[in-house]
């Protein structure tokens, strides 16, 4: 081994040791805090408020359920602009590149992460109905693409139903299982709007904050919650690509298993880990155009 590589591998080891030590310290601190029952006010990065009634193994079980593509959110009905992107590619101007899924996937992940993770993580930190309602209203104001709004609300409502009908009843602790009831009630209260300048409804059940709250109540950590949320987005996109005829099922699994996707999801989580709710927005402006113009497609397989 040459001295140069020796030196760099030594450096790598040192870095790894430092990283492991900091993780150990963080874990010790968390343990101490949960023992003493005290939680510092501004936990940063956010620690999962693991309720005592959810064991680690139960949380792991719920993680697998939430990451399952069979989770009945109806995600298969949405392509998040992929279908529109492909259709626009057929009538592109000479200065635009031909459509390609490897181009679209990381951009869509990056765009979706900036638009949704701040709300998801904030709801994970504090899944109380009042905070959830505020975050939901903020998503409703920030998500200004009509097609994306419909997709977000449809899946959010589905998740709330799954929570109420299936997940909450499985929890033995009443304070957990009833945690979202006031929020659901607010959603179902008829919204009185005077027609002049219609006020927006108090809550709409957007997916990102609800997912964060549900994951938090089920004992998932913030990292797990963010990773599973973005991975589900990627899985929905890849599945849409198969049905849109971009490639077959083996290639689809290859994309999902690939290092590129793992990196892209991990990187997106990392980037938006500390993004404030006020700073959520659109990283890829042309994405708004593709998603918004989905309504103009002559024939459609998907709802977005």
């Amino acid at each position: 081994m040459s001295p140069a590589t020796d030196e760099s591998s030594q450096q790598d080891l040192e870095l790894e040791i430092a990283a492991l030590e900091s993780r150990l310290a963080a874990a010790k601190q968390q343990l101490a805090q949960s023992k003493s029952g005290v939680r510092s006010k501004d936990d940063n990065p956010p620690h999962p408020p693991i309720p005592p009634t959810i064991t680690t193994s139960a949380a792991h079980h719920y993680l697998l359920l939430l990451s399952d593509s069979a989770l009945p959110l109806g995600s298969f009905a949405f392509s998040s602009g992929l279908e529109s992107y492909l259709a626009h590619g057929r009538q592109r101007t000479p200065n635009q590149p031909a459509p390609s899924f490897p181009f679209f996937l990381p951009l869509s992940l990056s765009s979706y992460a900036r638009a949704s993770l701040p709300f998801l993580l904030a709801a994970h930190r504090d899944p109380s109905p009042a905070t959830l309602a505020l975050l939901d209203d903020a998503v409703d104001a920030t998500l200004i693409c009509a097609v994306a709004r419909r997709a977000s609300v449809a899946q959010g409502r589905a998740l709330l139903s799954i929570w109420e009908k299936s997940l909450a009843p499985s929890l033995s602790c009443a304070s957990l299982s009833g945690a979202l009831a006031p929020y659901a009630l607010l959603l179902r209260t008829p919204h009185s709007a005077d027609d002049g300048e219609a006020e927006p409804p108090p809550v709409s059940a957007h997916l990102p904050p609800l997912f964060g709250a549900v994951a938090s109540l089920l004992g998932l950590s913030a990292r797990q919650c963010a990773y599973v949320f973005l991975l589900s987005h990627a899985k929905a996109l890849v599945s849409a690509a198969v049905r849109a005829g971009c490639f077959g099922p083996y290639q689809a699994q290859r994309v999902l298993a690939g290092e590129g996707l793992r990196d892209a999801v991990g990187e997106a989580v990392e980037r938006e880990w500390r993004t404030r709710v006020e700073d959520a927005g659109q990283r890829v402006p042309v994405m708004d155009l593709w998603v918004g113009r989905h309504e103009l497609l002559y024939s459609r397989i998907f709802n977005s």
Binding site: P106, L107, L109, A141, T142, G281
Partner: peptide, 21 residues
């Protein structure tokens, strides 16, 4: 006061929107 619409665009030229693009 109630927030009605927040339109935000973030363009990251230094880091790029993703690592590969």
């Amino acid at each position: 006061s109630q927030l009605l619409v927040r339109d935000a665009i973030i363009l990251d030229g230094a880091a790029g929107p993703t690592r590969s693009q």
